[in-house]
Design a protein around this nucleic acid. Sequence first.
DNA 1: CCCTTTTATTTAAACGTTTAGATTTCTTAT
DNA 2: ATAAGAAATCTAAACGTTTAAATAAAAGGG
Lengths: 345, 345
Amino acid sequence: MSNISIKDIAAKAQVSTATVSYVLNGTRNVKQVTRERVLQVIEEMNYKPNNAAQSLKRRRTNTIGVIAEDVTVFNVPEIIDGINDCADRLDMHILLTNLRLDKRIGRSFDDMDTYRQYAENAVSELLSKQVEGIIYIGVHPRDLTGLCDTDGKPIVYTYSYTENDPSIQYDDEQASYEAMRYLIDHGHSRIAIISGVMDSIPSRLRFNGFYKAVTEFQLPFDPLLIKMGDWEAESGYRLTKELLSLPEPPTAILSMNDVMAVGVLRAASEMSVSIPEQLSLIGFDNREFSEYLMPRITTMDLPLHEIGYQAMEALSRILQGEEAGISPKPMCRLIERDSVAPPKR
Amino acid sequence: MSNISIKDIAAKAQVSTATVSYVLNGTRNVKQVTRERVLQVIEEMNYKPNNAAQSLKRRRTNTIGVIAEDVTVFNVPEIIDGINDCADRLDMHILLTNLRLDKRIGRSFDDMDTYRQYAENAVSELLSKQVEGIIYIGVHPRDLTGLCDTDGKPIVYTYSYTENDPSIQYDDEQASYEAMRYLIDHGHSRIAIISGVMDSIPSRLRFNGFYKAVTEFQLPFDPLLIKMGDWEAESGYRLTKELLSLPEPPTAILSMNDVMAVGVLRAASEMSVSIPEQLSLIGFDNREFSEYLMPRITTMDLPLHEIGYQAMEALSRILQGEEAGISPKPMCRLIERDSVAPPKR
DNA sequence: CCCTTTTATTTAAACGTTTAGATTTCTTAT
DNA sequence: ATAAGAAATCTAAACGTTTAAATAAAAGGG
């Protein structure tokens, strides 16, 4: 049970505490022989520097806070993993705060009072722990700006649904543009889109990409093919039924997430429309299950690790006093599987 | 940009630093009027105690370390959420260390040297941060015992594949026993089991539960119905093909995880065996996708939040000097869906 | 061999708290 | 009014490091 301090090491190695500190940090020359003696003693006594004392004196903690709205949301762990990966390289540490918002206030995004309370607590806690900056992983349309005083400590947002600055996002618009191109390359022109809730930025960006492809490739723009979902499977199911009942149904559907794509699958199956023969389908997110469905669905993989990594990099840059810097948005990647084929004619 | 210390507060409120500390911690009587004055100043200056200084002086950090072999493994975030939930209540903080083992050494569980290196680093880091104890979330057959010196700090294992002490696990044996009962209640007697890799404790425990039910309900024990999988979908697929090709195929399959159950589904579909009419199926894990498959599969939900919570509770008890205590293992819960029906006769 | 320069080591203050023990101030009983 | 006791406040040391500044030891140069 250790309370071995630098003093104990100094005493046993017959040097001053300063010398021990110098060998530990390499901040000054130490004669080879004494260095070895000190290291030897450190090893013997299994000494570990007291981080609290170090931070106090150095006035640097090498620690950043990560606030996650909810760690159990599917994409959050990957992002944390990315932050972690980068933090390791920068010799930084992470203090994780899980707001547990999904558990605590569920889907009532407008319960701003409760949100504020939890958010303030979290920030206050982190500041007290002397974090040098904060990364905020949002999963819903809300954020910290104006909510609480971070005492000058920088915040970087990632995976946030709202527009913050600085904020690290992947390129949603390009992603849905690419998905469209893939469908078009396969010969589709009557393509429907099922969106997520429209108050979220990703929905809007993905819609932009869709629209860009429609105009660029001069597809007929039919408002009947634009459906507003809510990210849940049920909406994919319902809207697909509507789409397939159209006098002139689409030959392909772009679903803004894999969960709604499950609903598409179900509706198609019930209506005996086979995928991909009679209807092509592309999803978003590359959720694990997208590979387990029948057919395995083609989907857009999100660079989650990457945005976590970049968020940490950006924060680090800000901490060095540099500008956050605008690195190009990481790209999504199409995972080709079995849910797309040329349209039947 | 804050470097407001207790001294600044003391000066502005015209009291000594001791008094400020007393109002902050309530450790001594302070006259109502001075207390208010001090609190006022604290509020005004937005003062946050410096945690490093506090820990240094108090010699308590109220912080525990959590070491996760890999946070991106599906069940880990739920467990962390449970730890978090309990820690909040106990006013404890969590320092998360992600070994990133799946990324770094993949499936080579026997690469003990690399493992040791990462593990030692992690522990060393945490000890330096003065954590009071450690929770280790394992996902593979290996652990920390004998690997590195934790300097007397207690470790609690959870979700670990090996036998450690103290270790918080849910009741795997009971779970598979219950699953069997459910099948038996539905009229099945010729029940096959597809196991995970047999060097993992959960596999063995689940097998025990299976076997207990077989003997207790006097089912014919047929070795041909016992198949060794490896947790992956491919093995579920292959073994199901074998099972369904038997002269006397089973009427139900118990798969030790949902991923292998996907393979079962696929094999059955290819062989035109319909589920649940001709073959019943129960999985394990209640993975999100189990609800998205067709048919939605009946599966065992794991009390992941609960074991995280209990791990934190147990660690806290140890830190109070009490015994770890053996609370009853949390139970798994059967999620009834559409993959089980009475056998066709 | 002494003086100078370089290199190695030590001394002591500081970081921002907490907390015994000392001191002051306030109450209350006489 | 005063002494005694209680309540409030203050003083100062300590926690385990780091780091300027001071000092000591070693190395070079003539």
